[in-house]
Design a protein around this nucleic acid. Structure first.
Length: 276
DNA sequence: CCCCTCACCTGATCGC
DNA sequence: TGCGATCAGGTGAGGG
């Protein structure tokens, strides 16, 4: 489900809702979500902490705590938060973790659901956080992400461009939807070996990545089936997709037929007419 | 080291 | 309508 824009939307919602709150109670409904932590250790690490801010790194939701630790969540395919002003902890389908928070004025419950049970949620000390952070590549919306830095990621790799874009160790936050969309916008064929891109193409792809991700953040993400924001609302980027999930549809640019190809076990979409 | 395949899980959808 | 096969936005272990 969520890639960078969806994680960013959720993080912003959480920041607006629970930054400054204190955690009163934690319930772990499915212990596997916090593995390898135990449910007891997770509860202990989070209870009574104040949440100073909530942000995003790659596709992770990162909440900073007043003791210097971080409460981090990896949504994977179907992880989903919601917020309820009611302060009762109760079981619901697919519910993994409930966190009761309290501010001076108001309180409520952050619930975390995960249908497919791939998601993970931990509390990390600064060293463990650094280790995780170091494994993740450059943030594509940051100032450090330049055509030159993209070139340094693409040039050494003979793997298809699309697979390199999905590699979180190299560039952080791009998933299957936005990889296809960015290649389309840049007019490059995602199947080409990354190393074959020449600098003008790298510049176009760099720009395309930023445009696609930036617009998707503005549109609060792409909702196919599972993704919803903190308030349960859908994003709107699905309405402006050019190639993703449009197999056999007509290319809006050249009129050719969009195709689906399987790369590294996952679908990629492209227009053979105008992506070279 | 690089890169691909597969497994992890549940639910929705497709074809017969 | 029913039922098995297939596929889904992520990622890391394992193998070639």
């Amino acid at each position: 489900m969520p890639e960078l824009p969806e994680a960013e939307t959720i993080a912003r919602g959480l920041h607006a809702t629970i930054a400054g709150s204190r955690v009163e109670r934690v319930r772990v409904h499915r212990a596997e979500v916090v593995e390898p932590m135990t449910a007891a250790a997770f509860r202990r690490a989070l209870t009574d902490r104040r949440i100073t801010s909530v942000g995003r790194r790659a596709k992770w939701i990162v909440a900073s705590l007043d003791d210097g630790n971080r409460w981090v969540t990896q949504l994977r395919m179907t992880g989903r938060f919601d917020w309820s002003a009611a302060s009762r902890l109760q079981a619901r389908p697919h519910l993994s973790v409930s966190v009761l928070v309290q501010r001076a004025d108001t309180g409520g419950v952050i619930r975390f659901y995960d249908v497919r049970r791939f998601a993970r949620m931990w509390v990390l000390d600064p060293a463990a956080w650094s280790e995780l952070d170091a494994r993740l590549g450059i943030e594509p919306l940051s100032d450090e992400f330049t055509p030159a830095s993209l070139a340094s990621v693409l040039a050494p790799s003979r793997a298809p461009i699309r697979n390199v874009l999905l590699d979180q160790r190299r560039i952080a936050g791009i998933g299957n939807i936005y990889a296809s969309e960015a290649c389309y916008l840049a007019r490059v064929d995602p199947r080409r070996p990354a190393t074959t891109l020449v600098m003008p193409e790298v510049r176009k792809l760099h720009r395309a990545i930023r445009v696609v991700l930036g617009e998707a953040v503005e549109r609060r993400g792409t909702s196919f089936s599972d993704y919803r924001d903190l308030l349960g609302d859908e994003g709107t980027f699905q309405n402006v997709l050019d190639v993703y999930d449009r197999e056999d549809d007509t290319c809006r640019r050249c009129g050719d037929q969009i195709i689906r190809v399987v790369m590294a076990g996952r679908s990629a979409y492209l227009c053979p007419g105008c992506q070279k």
